[in-house]
Design a protein around this nucleic acid. Structure first.
Lengths: 355, 355
DNA sequence: TTGAAAGCGATACCAT
DNA sequence: ATGGTATCGCTTTCAA
C-alpha cells in the first residue's frame, strides 16, 4: 500500500516536504497539483498533447507550473512510456574535422524532433563494447553511429529492439540502415578529370586498411585508374590526420615513386599532402603535382589550399539519418535500407581538372 | 497493492512474460533474479559496490546477468537515487574549430568518471532557454557550459541545485565556477613580442562585442598597445569565423588604415586575415604584415599558415572543468571558484616575435 | 546474507 | 473532463 502518497487536496503539503527535507530537489507534478487545486493526473494530462483538459483548469495548472518552475521528470516519464527520447550518437574520432559539422547538424535536427543527444566520442574503436553497455542502460530510443560496428554488435541492436542507423559506414555481411556518400562516383569524377587534364602517374594516400570508407574510396580510385589503362599506383597509408597525410606524401617520394597526381582518401590528409609537396619537397601544386581529397571540409576551401575535392552533402545526409532513425523508432520492423548520396565536385586550385 | 508483481521464486516466468508480450524490450533485474533463483533485491545489491552478497550467489547472479545480457535501467536507478549520471554540455558553436577538441576531451574525461554527456549544440545563443528546460527535465547532475548565460539563468542552477561550470566564459556580476585561459597575459606576450620586433602600427580583429572572451582578448591587446605608448589601433569585428576574419582584414585595408601587425581574437579569424593579406591584398606575411591569433587550433600549425599564437592548455582546462564539476556535484555548497590557466606562446612564421 | 515491501515521479487505464 | 490507482525497474530500509 502506498496510501501515504495518496493525494489529499485539503491537506497542507507540510507532510510531503517533511518527507524529503533537503535532498529532494525539483518540484514534482504533485506540487503543481496542490498549487492548482487539482489531481496529479490532471497535471500530467495537461502536458500530454491531445489530452482532454478543460481550458480553465489547463490555464490554472500551467500558471502553477510556470510559477513553480516545473518541468516533468524525463526519467520517470521514460520509465513508464518506454521512450527516453534519447538518441545515442557514437563518433569514432571527433578530431577528424569532418565530424564536428556532422555532429552539430545531427544535434540540431534531433532537437528539432524533440530528441536529446547522448554523445559518445570514442578515443579508440575498442571502447565500443563499453559504450554499448551504457547505451542499453540509458534505454536510448535509437543510435546513430559513425563508427565501426561488428556484425555481432549490430545483432544486439536487433535483439534489443533499438533502432540504429550507420553514418558514413556500411556493413556488407550484416545489413543495417545506413547513410553514406557514394565514393566510387566521386573518385571517378576526380580521376577522370585528372586524366583528361593529362595526368598519368597517380599515387594514392589511403586510410587504415580496416576503414571501410577509406578502402571504398581507394578502391573507387584504383578501379578508375585501371579503367583508364594506367598502371596500378603506389599506395601510402595514413590515419586521416594532417600529419599522416604529410608523412604519407613524403613516404611516397622517399620510396622513389614518381607521380604527378595524388589522390587522398580524405581532405585533411590531402591538405597534409599539399604541404608535404610545397613545404617539404619544394614542389608546386598543381604544376608539379596535383592533389585531390574527399569530404569538403571548411579548411579545404581556405585560400592557402583551395583543394579540389568532392563535397559530401552533409545537410542532406544528416537529415536522412535522422529521418531513417525516427522511422525505425516508430516502426521497429522496418528493414534495412541504404541511402547513398552523391558528392558534389568542388574544383579548387590544387588540381586542374578537365571534365 | 502491487501483489501482481510480487516475486514468487517457484512460479514460472510465463506470467510475467505474458504481461508484456511484445512491447517489453529489455531484461530486468527480475528476469535475472528468476534465472539465478534469488530475489530481485539480491540482483540489485550485486551491482552496488560494497554491498553484502555471498560470493557464491554473486557468481550465480553475474552469470545469469551476463547470459541474459542484462544492464540496469539507468532511468529507474536515477529516479530513486536522484542521480542521473548525466552531464549536460552546452556548446554555443561547434563549428568553431576550437570546440571539437574541447568536446572530445570533456567526453573522454567524463566517461572515465562514469558520467554520460547530454549534448546541446546551439545554433544561436537564444536557444538557451529552451535548452535549460530540457536540462531540468533530464535531471542532469551538472552542466558544463561554453555559452553565454545570463545572471538569471545562472541563478536557476543555484536554485535547482544543479552544479554548473563555465568553460571559457566568466560572468562578472553573478559569480560562478569557471575555467578560462588568461587573455591579458597572452595578448601581452604577443604585443610585446611584436613591439620588440619593431612593429608599431597595430590593427585588431575582434569578435562580436557581446562576446566576453573576445572582448577580454581585445582589451588585453589594447591595454598593452597603450602601455607601449602607441596610438589606439583600428578595430574590425568578425564572428570568429574564417570568412569574417578575411573580410575584417580587407575592411581594415579598405578603410585606409595602415598597419604592420594584426592581432586577431582567435586563430581562425587570424588565418582568414592571413589569407586576406596574401591572397586578396598581395602582401607578404610577416614581411609586410605580421598576424597573430589566439587558441592554438590544429590548422594554425599547418605549414601553409604556421600561425604565431597562444595555445590554450585544453587538456588541463577540461580536466579542471570536470574536476570542479564533480566536486560541486558531490558538495553543492561549494562556492564559486575561477580557475585561470596561462596559455603557451607558440612562435610560428606569421609573426617574427622578439622576446 | 537474504527477501519483502515501500517508494522515486511520471503515464495509462479505469471509473466517475 | 476529472480523480484514483496500478505500474515502469530500480534502490533502500527493515526484518528475518
Amino acid at each position: 500500500m502506498r496510501s501515504g502518497r495518496t493525494f489529499v487536496s485539503d491537506g497542507t503539503d507540510g507532510k510531503r516536504r517533511a518527507e524529503r527535507p533537503r535532498g529532494g530537489r525539483g518540484v514534482t507534478s504533485y506540487d503543481v497539483a496542490v498549487k492548482a487545486g487539482v489531481s496529479q493526473s490532471a497535471v500530467s494530462r495537461c502536458f500530454k498533447p491531445g489530452a482532454s483538459v478543460a481550458p480553465a483548469t489547463r490555464k490554472r495548472i500551467l500558471a502553477a507550473a510556470r510559477e513553480l518552475g516545473y518541468s516533468a521528470n524525463a526519467m520517470a516519464r521514460g520509465l513508464i512510456t518506454r521512450r527516453s527520447n534519447l538518441v545515442g550518437v557514437i563518433i569514432s574520432n571527433l578530431t577528424n574535422l569532418y565530424y564536428p559539422e556532422v555532429l552539430a547538424d545531427l544535434s540540431q535536427r534531433l532537437s528539432a524532433r524533440d530528441m536529446r543527444v547522448l554523445l559518445f566520442a570514442l578515443r579508440n574503436e575498442s571502447d565500443i563494447d563499453h559504450v554499448l553497455g551504457q547505451i542499453w542502460g540509458y534505454q536510448v530510443d535509437g543510435v546513430i553511429a559513425a563508427a565501426r560496428l561488428s556484425a555481432d554488435q549490430l545483432a544486439q541492436f536487433e535483439r534489443r529492439g533499438v533502432a540504429i542507423v550507420l553514418y558514413n559506414r556500411v556493413h556488407e555481411t550484416a545489413p543495417a540502415a545506413s547513410v553514406t556518400c557514394e565514393f566510387a562516383g566521386g573518385e571517378q569524377l576526380l580521376v577522370d578529370g585528372l586524366v583528361n587534364a593529362g595526368r598519368r602517374r597517380f599515387a594514392v594516400i589511403g586510410g587504415p586498411t580496416d576503414s571501410t570508407v577509406g578502402e571504398a574510396r581507394v578502391r573507387g580510385a584504383l578501379a578508375r585508374i585501371a579503367a583508364a589503362g594506367l598502371a596500378p599506383p603506389p599506395i601510402a597509408r595514413g590515419d586521416f590526420s594532417y600529419v599522416s597525410g604529410r608523412r604519407a606524401f613524403n613516404d611516397l617520394r622517399g620510396a622513389g615513386a614518381s607521380f604527378d597526381a595524388v589522390i587522398a582518401a580524405n581532405d585533411v590528409m590531402a591538405l597534409g599532402a599539399m604541404d608535404g609537396a610545397r613545404s617539404d619537397a619544394g614542389l608546386q601544386v598543381p604544376r608539379d603535382v596535383a592533389v585531390v581529397g574527399f569530404d569538403g571540409v571548411a579548411p579545404a576551401m581556405w585560400a592557402a589550399y583551395q583543394l579540389t575535392t568532392v563535397r559530401q552533402p552533409v545537410g542532406r545526409m544528416t537529415q536522412a539519418a535522422v529521418d531513417m532513425l525516427m522511422e525505425r523508432i516508430d516502426n521497429p520492423d522496418l528493414g534495412p535500407e541504404r541511402r547513398v548520396f552523391s558528392g558534389e565536385l568542388i574544383i579548387g586550385a590544387s588540381a586542374d581538372l578537365v571534365l
